[in-house]
Amino acid sequence: MEPDADIEGEVGPLDETALEQIREEFTRVDGLVAEAGFDSLLDPTKLVVRLDDGIGDAGCCRFDIRWYRLGYYTFHHTDDQGVDFRFDFHPKPDVPNKHFHEPPDAASADPPHSCITVTEPKLVTRAVHHLWRRAYETDSLEQLNGAEYPP
């Protein structure tokens, strides 16, 4: 699945400065980050963050992250078990701008509200990481998009 395909409105170009902040923050908050960088210097399309372990049976996972000039973003998770989900904020008719594409395949029909309400790149990064790490340590995808814990 191509995350950009979901965007239906003006978001601007990628904001490399915001993505650089996200790279820095993700690396800072989790020792499992094996690698974090842009896919290309000359024609960057996303920031890729690889982690050395994953939720449940997954042995590794990856976040493909895009942050746009107008403050919109997509944080797309995938792992070696084929579990995909995505926290999004962008224009999309008939669904909330802040929405969550649910696992296991980041389903695109009727995505529910994302539980992430913070808006700064580093805060969104911390929130996404918090939700991922909680699922990782509790070994469950059930509460992935739940702001409150315990639910």
Binding site: C115, I116, T117, V118, L123, V124, R126, A127, H130, L131, R134, E137, T138, A147, E148, Y149, P150
Partner: peptide, 9 residues
């Protein structure tokens, strides 16, 4: 993990 994810962030 207790509490609200946004507040924690």
């Amino acid at each position: 993990w207790e509490g609200d994810v946004n507040e924690a962030a």
